[in-house]
Computed example of a mutant assay.
Amino acid sequence: MHTNAELDEKAPLRVIVDDVNDNAPEFVGPLHFTVPEHCSAGTVVGVVSATDRDQIGTDHVKIKYTLVSGSDMFTIHPETGVITTTTNTLDRELKDNHVVTVKIQDMNGAPNGLFATSTATIALSDINDNPPAFMKSSYNVTVQEDESEKLLLRIPVQDKDLINTSNWMSKFVITKGNENGNFRIVTDPQTNEGLLYISKPLDYEKTNDVQLQITAQNVASLNGSSATWQSIPVNVNVEKVDAVRAGLGQQIGPSILTRDPPTRRALTSPHTPTTFSQLFSQSPGREQQTARSVSFGLLGIMTVLCPVVLLLLLFLVLAFFCLKKREKLQLYDSGDTGGIPLKANTEAPEDSTAWEY
């Protein structure tokens, strides 16, 4: 027969503490997500994670996820916390960041459940949905027929995509009018402008007008947009070079020597006189230009010789007046002799003491 005391010593006593829902759920991990702009509806943005310190397996830790704000463009799964898009109209160029308020509540969202709220930031990454846009609809530029490697035009463009990315950086192409390779176009890396150069001289006699078509593209391909690359016309007017400037006058004339500095220095050097053989040896070969160029060269030589001739004439005039002046002085020195100069007495005086007897 066992007593109550013996039973108390041998039987274990288990005390079960019933969990009370006294801990609100907490957010775990960052609440910053990124999704491409113009993504399709249903695209996963990210997952909101939460935890609850109450007893596992009870409704105290069963969390329900809801969006307090931002439900017009996003939605969240009530059990997993996965955020997805509800539209394909997210546009980074209009709004690059969206802030939504997330609510987590235990007891599976029951009214008596504890809850917490926080904001999640959803950033939109850029896609190339905006082609470069020209500032003007067309351009006109003038070039002389003998020019080359000269900047003719700067073509600015606007691009709404993210600056300094391949979606923003422009790439210009001459799509028409450059079959002979007279032009080239590059991109200014600082301003994103197109720089149009003349790379080979044009011939006015062959063409005095060139119609180019410039297309602006991006380094990256277009994506998520129905837009296409834009093109504009560029009219290049070719000017004929004046024959005097094209011939020897351009190289020799002191007043219009603006090109070929080595030739100018050689011809104007005080130690290198210019001869007529040099003038004719530098003829471009065309008869008309040669005749005009030689005449211009002679004009330049006459311009140099005229001052020398004038100085020589002035010297002769002064010499003539000096001779006249000298003759007048001799006439004045003749005294009252009627204009006959007196004969100088060059004989030595007699020594009276030497001839006395």
Rank of each mutant, 00 (worst) to 15 (best):
T43C: 01
A319T: 09
W355I: 12
K324H: 02
T119S: 02
S138C: 10
S226T: 12
T89Q: 15
E205F: 15
P12N: 09
G300F: 14
D351M: 11
D8R: 14
K10W: 02
T43A: 02
E147M: 10
L248Y: 05
Q282N: 05
N140P: 06
D260M: 09
T58A: 06
T142W: 09
L196T: 05
T272A: 02
L212G: 02
R245C: 06
G70C: 07
D188R: 02
A5F: 02
K136I: 03
S137Y: 08
N178F: 14
E287G: 02
N208I: 06
A11S: 10
Q330A: 14
V102K: 04
T84D: 04
D146E: 09
K343A: 12
P111R: 06
A24D: 02
N192A: 11
A116L: 15
E347C: 01
I56V: 12
K343M: 14
L248C: 07
Q158W: 07
R326D: 07
T175F: 02
F315N: 03
I127A: 04
L202Q: 10
H271Q: 05
A220Y: 13
T228S: 01
V20R: 10
L329R: 14
S334G: 10
L90M: 04
T187D: 07
S277D: 15
P262D: 10
N180D: 06
D91M: 04
Q250K: 06
D106M: 10
Y357N: 06
L313F: 15
T86G: 10
F321A: 04
I340T: 06
V61T: 09
W229V: 01
T101F: 04
I76T: 07
